[in-house]
Each structure stands twice: as C-alpha cells, then as structure tokens.
C-alpha cells in the first residue's frame, strides 16, 4: 500500500482491497484500485480481483485510513518480542519418552 491516498485526475481516491479466498481463511490484501466511493470500489474489486471465483468476501478500505508501522526491520517497535525465546514451545526441553506433548 502507498503512504498516502493519491487522487487521480478525476479525484477518485485509492482503496486497498482484501479478499477472503474461501470460508475459514482470513481476508488477504490483494492490491488497490481507484473508485469514486465505497460501493464502486467493491464492485470494481469484484470485477478486477475475483473473475475466477477467487473470493467469497471482499473488504475495501481507503488507503489513507490505514495506519502502518515503519518498514525498517530494526525498528525498536518490534524489539519487545525479539528477546523472549521462552514464548516459543521449542524453548522447553521435554524427554523423548513423554507422550502427547
């Protein structure tokens, strides 16, 4: 997604499109499109991103309504989870003869 929602010459804002591929799956970001309003964005998203039954549900959201973290992997924003190996099951040694764990 872009950093802001640019408006084309006709003043149509940018929308990000999320599609649920089938029941049981999350909506996944698939791309963006310009539309005059939400309803048009949904209709265009259907025509553009689900021509071959790729989806059972679509979300559209204006790009400028999204707040995002910075892209830098070294960002301290993610450091709280960086040093907590004990949050992972592999941190714990269990003898091989213990079943079902």
């Amino acid at each position: 997604m872009s950093t802001e929602a640019p408006r084309g010459s006709a003043g149509w804002p940018l929308y990000e499109v999320f599609v649920r591929g089938k029941r049981g799956l999350n909506h996944v970001h698939v791309g963006s499109l310009h539309a005059a309003d939400e309803r048009m964005a949904l209709t265009s998203a259907r025509d553009l991103y689900t021509r071959r039954n790729e989806g059972v549900s679509i979300w559209v959201v204006r790009s400028d309504a999204i707040t995002a973290s910075t892209p830098d992997e070294k960002d301290p924003f993610f450091s709280p989870s960086g040093d907590k190996v004990y949050r992972h099951p592999t941190f714990y040694a269990i003898p091989d003869d213990v079943p079902h764990i």
């Binding site: 997604m1 872009s2 950093t3 640019p6 408006r7 084309g8 010459s9 006709a10 940018l14 791309g31 963006s32 499109l33 310009h34």
Partner: peptide
C-alpha cells in the same frame, strides 16, 4: 498500475 502506484506515482 496498482503495483506502480506503490512506488509513489498516480496511475492517471
């Protein structure tokens, strides 16, 4: 065009 727009240029 959607991919190009992520580079900061408008498709119009």
């Amino acid at each position: 065009y959607s991919a190009a727009e992520t580079l900061g240029i408008d498709r119009s």
